[in-house]
């Protein structure tokens, strides 16, 4: 243990005071929203006129987060199975492998990603039609 007075080391931390008068860099979230860059992996979107119901996304998903459920009205005549994907956000890890393997590239991820709810049954998500 050195007992010698370390003058520089004692004074230099007070440099922090200069930051007192700077503009804060806080993002005040609920009122000010930070722009999320394009390409961020958020919620799913599915272009129904392109979706062919092939279930490749279901096959590649290691979390078994994707259900294929029957569609009420056919928007794409080429949809051979009549099913479209629905995502369970209690399983999804936003790896975007499902969008990589999608043959017509109808399944995509959008930038929006913020969701909180008090009921845990509210996390089944039907991708928006874009």
């Amino acid at each position: 243990m050195n007992t010698k007075l370390d003058i520089k080391g004692t004074i230099s931390p007070f440099n922090a005071i200069t930051k007192l008068f700077e503009h804060p860099n806080t993002i005040c979230y609920p009122s000010v929203k930070k722009e999320i860059p394009k390409g961020y992996r958020g919620f799913h979107t599915n272009t129904l006129t392109d979706c062919i119901g092939c279930a490749n996304c279901q096959d590649v998903c290691m979390n078994e987060a994707i259900d294929m459920i029957p569609i009420e009205e056919d928007k794409n005549p080429k949809n051979s199975s009549g099913c479209i994907p629905r995502i369970d956000y209690g399983r999804c890890c936003w790896c975007s492998l499902c969008t990589d393997v999608c043959p017509p590239s109808s399944l995509k991820l959008e930038e929006d990603c913020i969701w909180a709810n008090d009921n845990s049954n509210n996390f089944l998500y039907m991708p928006k039609d874009k």
Binding site: K34, C92, C113, A116
Partner: peptide, 28 residues
């Protein structure tokens, strides 16, 4: 399912959630 063992008041979506989502959880 965490809910089975202790009562949860707010679930936040994400893997993992962004700080904004966490704040959203607090606000809700």
């Amino acid at each position: 399912r965490l809910e089975d063992y202790i009562p949860v008041d707010m679930f936040v979506n994400g893997c993992m959630p962004r700080p904004e989502a966490l704040i959203e959880g607090f606000v809700k």
